[in-house]
Amino acid sequence: MSLSLDTRKNAFPGIKVLRALYASRLFRTVFTIVVLVGIWQVIAVLKDTSYLVPRPIGFDFDVPHSSVLAAGWHSMTINSPTQDPLWSHALISIRRALIGYFAAIAVAVPIGMIAAWWKAIDDTAGSFIELVRPIPALALIPIAIIWFGFGEVAKVAIIGYACFFSIYINTHAGVRNVDPLFIRVMKVYGRGQWDILTKVVFYSMLPYAFTGARYAAAIALILLVAVELVGAQDGLGFSLARAQQVLATTEVYFIIVLFGAIGFVFNWAVLFAERRVIKWRQEVDAQV
């Protein structure tokens, strides 16, 4: 055992560096991205069908169709009276998603708590929510447009509506999973309903609500794209549709990657908030 270890140590001096790199989580992530983009680049160069699979990397920034990177540079820095740069569309989209998302949290958490806590409300309002939940939110886009027109309200409402359910369901489950022991503790020490709700139920359901909020972050982006593809004059979804219509494949790819990046940051932000808020939990470390 020790013999083989020694030979490995002597065999290749760079092995220590490689091991240190392998142990670094950042390196693992970056390495994966580099490999995947590399494969994409190789395929694109070999096939040379830029309108189907454009090259991801290329430094001919004056020609937007030469690579996804160039298209990104071009669309972000565009400076013309007829067309806004892509980042301004991105901001509009992010704003829509966030308003809908936070509105959903503000509504779903209290309703989820109330419905899970009081049987009468669960049997009435809760049942109604379960009844409409299976309807895909996408199917409600036409109704939202009929009700609210093509303005911001319809878009935000659809996003918020779709986000509502995952937060609601998880909050509801969280309340139902409160340890009865803690409720006994509160009763024994003379605390009433309100204290039980705010000092026990609320905290026990928080981790569940955060799980729901992470799902909802992904759902918000899906619905964002949908509402902007269907009826918008601005935003990333609108830019995506327009790029496709003029066969600007590189820009299409760039916007898709941008959506991915926004989703990644969104998810990370929710995780970050969760770690900040829920400090009392003992976390289990993943295997190295």
Partner: peptide, 20 residues
């Protein structure tokens, strides 16, 4: 079991009954 509220500090757990 000690039945402490996991989200409260030692101090807050002990003052739980006093506030009531």
């Amino acid at each position: 079991q000690a039945a402490l509220l996991p989200w409260f500090s030692v101090m807050k757990n002990i003052t739980l009954g006093l506030a009531a």
